[in-house]
Design a protein around this nucleic acid. Structure first.
Lengths: 341, 341
DNA sequence: CTGAAAGCGCTTACAG
DNA sequence: CTGAAAGCGCTTACAG
């Protein structure tokens, strides 16, 4: 297995009867070098298929052009759309991306941060593991390299945070239900006060208040680990109430789909008797019958935006760390599980 | 923003009044170094949180412990399950993974191979872009670093290829339909003769032959780009036949789900009138109603297997390149779209 | 406008 | 059992 020997600066210097320094500067368009020399060098470089040894370069400059990305779960459809944006934007800007999965395990997450730094990444993009308690290790990372958070974020970490407009999106979703004549709207949310869940709940409350609808604790349901099955179970609970809701807003699509499955099972008409709105626009939302009205989260845009902020911070280091929240607009998609207004 | 200064071999050597060489050898458990020295060095190393500068190391040894992975589309659920296996296994073995998306674009794929090599990856794991024609650029890669293919593979590239038992899996799926009394089984496949499509079709044919069922071209349907919508359309075609099939085997879940949607629309009873079996066990297959019988592809196992072969080739370089096909067993999951045997 | 030289942090053949 | 030294390929302050 013969390894092809790569062309180095030395090879070029020898062939052109120049010094290595000059060749290096010429390729980097250093203004000291005459245009004609630069051109001669570049010509031969392309001819000999010169590609810089990024390792030597990175070793010398402490820059690798590799970014670290940590996500809780790579199988979530929303995550993969974000990764699409992350991959394409970083490629455009000349960076590569190392991806790790924290599996929502805080210990793993900390380890990953460490080894990523060890692998020489220039910056880190991260969605926090659920219930991340010890912010300390993350704050320490920030002393070393730039960090940008997305999706799962925390006010306690002073850095750029790219999120969707959760509160407003939830507000719009609930207002949509109100506009189609619904007045008793249940919510299925997380018990745990994650950033997203909290914001979406706030949007729900604001929509009810601004439309002078009563807030009824009996139809505000929470669950530890929100999922399709939990959506089903909680919807069963709602159906056993004397005073049933006429709509359900679930803060995730999977819970919303669980709700639809439960309603279908008991032959509750959707959206006539009970309408359903979800959150995320998973692929599943068009598979279920009736198709699910939901909030579309533009994952690719979130990914692209987060990466461009991160690279900006790498290339233009900031003096001070401060929290900067970037909100990406979402879009309500109305399908068959709610009325068209 | 104060960058923490990392401990280096030099720091350790100075503190211990040893030479850098000795410290290096001690940490690498070189047999020349006395046990007591090794222990002294390691003790201080952990105390000072020494972590080797992998860049210096990689630069010196031409090994980076970074692997390149190229997939056509990171959003496909099956792909994400493979990536899960890839990430966890590579982490276990001390490697990191750079991921790129070829978007089924052969040109992009070639570029990605190039830049990955430039970024110093130790080996590459790849699922081929659809319709990859020019094997040349890939064969050239093999002269430089180990390559392992998975899922989308090609007989023309002499390397380890990790795939599922497509032919057998399809055979089992069709046999399952036959065992439940179905005798006129349609297939929805790809026009293009990809490795997977071809193998699955062969399994279909063998099942019919071995059970002495006639092969009828009218119910062998092909499409360029197999998808949910194409599944729907082709099923509509099947319904308009004078002699309808009593079962449909679709070589992807999305096409199978399209088929179910079409059957539901025309109130065809599933599985009584027409049964449906898909391929992949996507999350969607439990969302659709009736739930889809399908072939489960163990993505994580495929990922783990492929990575372990790749790392083995990196760490124990082979003299000659040869095609070695590793088949991962699949499992038929019977749900409501076909009868329980 | 160009070059000689140091140095990034590590490994390893060579010497003792 | 340990050390001095070369070198991986590059960048950059210094000198001219």
């Amino acid at each position: 297995m013969s390894k092809k020997q790569n062309t180095t600066l030395k090879d070029l210097a020898l062939a052109l009867e120049l010094s290595i320094s000059t060749v290096s500067r010429a390729l980097n368009d250093h203004p000291d070098i005459s245009i004609s020399t630069r051109e001669r060098v570049k010509l031969l470089a392309t001819k000999l298929h010169y590609t810089p040894n990024l390792f030597a370069k990175g070793f010398r400059t402490h820059r690798t052009h590799i970014l670290g990305v940590i996500v809780p779960n790579i199988s979530h459809y929303f995550t993969t759309t974000i990764l699409k944006g992350v991959l394409s934007e970083s490629e455009n800007l000349g960076y590569r991306v190392i991806i790790s999965e924290s599996k929502n395990d805080e210990i793993k997450q900390t380890e990953m941060l460490e080894t990523m730094i060890q692998f020489g990444v220039d910056g880190i993009l991260m969605a926090l593991a659920r219930k991340t308690k010890s912010i300390d290790s993350i704050l320490q990372i920030q002393n070393r390299i730039p960090l940008v958070l997305f999706d799962k974020v925390s006010d306690k970490i002073p850095c750029t945070q790219v999120v969707i407009n959760d509160e407003e999106a939830a507000y719009n979703a609930v207002e949509h239900l109100i506009n189609t004549g619904k007045t008793r709207i249940a919510i299925i949310k997380e018990t745990e006060q994650s950033f997203n869940s909290r914001k979406r709940f706030e949007g729900y409350l604001r929509a009810l208040k601004e439309h002078n609808l009563p807030i009824d604790e009996k139809i505000i349901l929470s669950t530890e680990d929100i999922s399709l099955n939990k959506g089903k179970m909680l919807t069963n609970n709602l159906l056993s109430l004397k005073n049933r809701p006429d709509a359900i807003f679930a803060i995730t699509d999977s819970a919303a789909i669980g709700a639809i499955k439960a309603l279908n099972k008991f032959n509750v008409e959707i959206p006539n008797e009970i309408a359903v709105v979800g959150f995320s626009n998973n692929i599943n939302s068009t598979i279920i019958n009736p198709s699910l009205s939901t909030v579309d989260q533009p994952g690719e845009k979130i990914g692209r935006t987060a990466i461009s902020y991160l690279i900006d911070e790498i290339e233009n280091p900031k003096e001070t760390l401060l929290t900067k929240t970037v909100e990406i607009k979402t879009n309500l998609i109305v399908r068959d599980s709610s009325f068209v207004p």
